[in-house]
Amino acid sequence: MPSPTDTTSDESTLLDALQHQVAIFARRAEQTRLGGLGQVRNSMDRAAYLLLNRLDQEGPMGVKALAAGMGIDSSTVTRQVAPLVDTGLVKRTSHPEDGRAVVLQLSPRGLARLREVRESRRELMAQITDDWSAEEREMFTALLTRFNATITTRTSDRAPAAPQVPTES
């Protein structure tokens, strides 16, 4: 029967291996940018892909909502969206209920481009995991999703709280 010290040592070894593999994954992902295959390879940076993907999945929204949904600052979203607007992948439109507010919307060109990049990245994932079973792909996807969700939760839990404005009673 393993002693508590052995278990702690085994767990430490496993966690060391995990953090090392995550570091390698981050490097490999950045090296390839997991950008897909063919002409589309590396043609869209991670920030653009994530922004376009969110607009496609959730529809038009304001900068603040987009930033909150992605767990980043509004100024970062504004900076990242600017070239997408300039290239016609995203368009700014008036909010349907409040004409003074601006919402960001995926343009038809942006949707076509996103679909092209998704297909290329899908093919890359198929090639990388071509010797994996369907169950292994599902398990890896589920665990990676859980891993990312936990990081998101921990990061948002540690974010500094917005200063509270005193209200008059």
Rank of each mutant, 00 (worst) to 15 (best):
T129Y: 02
Q127L: 11
R121E: 04
I128L: 15
R113Q: 12
E97Q: 14
S133Y: 04
V102I: 10
T129C: 04
V117F: 06
E119W: 05
G99A: 15
L104K: 11
T129F: 04
D131T: 15
S133L: 01
L106V: 09
R122C: 07
I128R: 10
S120Q: 03
D98V: 11
R100Y: 11
R109G: 04
L124H: 06
L106G: 13
L106W: 13
L106E: 10
T129K: 00
G99L: 13
A134E: 15
G110E: 05
A134W: 05
L111K: 15
Q105K: 13
S107C: 03
L111A: 13
D98S: 14
E97C: 03
R113W: 00
I128E: 09
A112F: 11
A112Y: 09
D131H: 07
R121A: 02
G110Y: 07
E116N: 05
L124A: 06
A101G: 00
L104M: 12
W132I: 01
D131P: 03
Q127H: 10
R121L: 02
M125H: 01
S120A: 14
L104P: 09
D131N: 08
G110C: 06
L106Y: 13
R113P: 07
S133F: 00
E119N: 12
L111M: 09
R122E: 06
V102W: 04
L104G: 10
M125R: 01
P108M: 06
E97M: 06
S133K: 04
E119T: 14
E119H: 07
R122V: 07
W132Q: 02
D130M: 01
E97H: 13
D98A: 14
V103C: 07
E123L: 11
P108V: 15
G99W: 11
D98M: 08
Q105H: 03
R121I: 10
R122N: 09
Q127G: 04
A126P: 02
R118F: 03
A134R: 10
G99R: 15
A101T: 13
A101P: 05
D98N: 15
M125W: 00
A126R: 09
